[in-house]
Design a protein around this nucleic acid. Structure first.
Lengths: 120, 120
DNA sequence: TATTTATTTCGTAATTTTGCGAAATAACGA
DNA sequence: TCGTTATTTCGCAAAATTACGAAATAAATA
């Protein structure tokens, strides 16, 4: 029978990052950490999302395993921060995947010149 | 007991797109369609990835349901093309999620390219 | 008409994901 | 020391995902 197809490494990496972000809890955590570029404790997430500590712990573990966050022990707490390096890496991967997007209005340098636009 | 947390709509939308792209077959198909901005038939995917037709059909259905592709009947074939509108939308969602990344050279706002730009 | 090709639907089995409670660990403060 | 708080690990059950084969549909063609 035919050999199994070998996916491009980028596709596998991207789909794995996508898998990690496919859970709302994990997406929420990453959004929180990246948005305000701040850190948080597991107990913050427990309070905010009102889910079991063990569930949060599991998701944080997965994010850590994926290299997207890193934890620093602070007494009985563990302060989790984003791993900027890998976060950027994931960002580039997705950006490349979706391709260069036409600029949005608010991103355009000069609004006037938008009126004659030839891009597809 | 505490009411269930209500996620931001963007988070839910993003994690759902992420779920869709978390499967290598689906990521492969989208990459193929978006990369060369071309179309394909289900049977192409069957041949390329060497997986069962029913499996491919299922994945195409999911992509269609997510609004990322659209099919046009062509005799016994169905030609699938990308749904640019929604693909762009997903792209923006991810771009916003990952935040503005340090500009790469080719992304730098260049008056010339903006001058001929029709896209909204 | 019979055959071939592309596709879909359906049912199924295997695997993965998810969320939780219970129990254990660790650090802090009264 | 004892109780509180934060966290993790473990086991479990429910749900979702995945891939497949068999059967059915539909169009093209010999």
């Amino acid at each position: 029978m035919a050999a199994k197809f070998k996916y491009n490494e980028d596709i596998l990496e991207l789909s794995n990052f996508a898998r990690v972000m496919s859970n709302p809890v994990r997406a929420y955590i990453m959004k929180k950490l990246s948005d305000m570029n701040t850190c948080c404790y597991g107990c913050d997430i427990v309070k905010e999302l009102r889910i079991a500590p063990s569930t949060v712990s599991q998701h944080l573990k997965e994010l850590k395993y994926a290299g997207l966050i890193q934890g620093v022990t602070e007494g009985p707490f563990i302060k989790y921060c984003i791993n900027s390096e890998n976060w950027k890496e994931a960002g580039y991967l997705f950006r490349e995947f979706f391709g260069e997007l036409p600029v949005k209005k608010e991103d355009i340098c000069d609004i006037k010149s938008v009126e004659n636009n030839n891009d597809i």
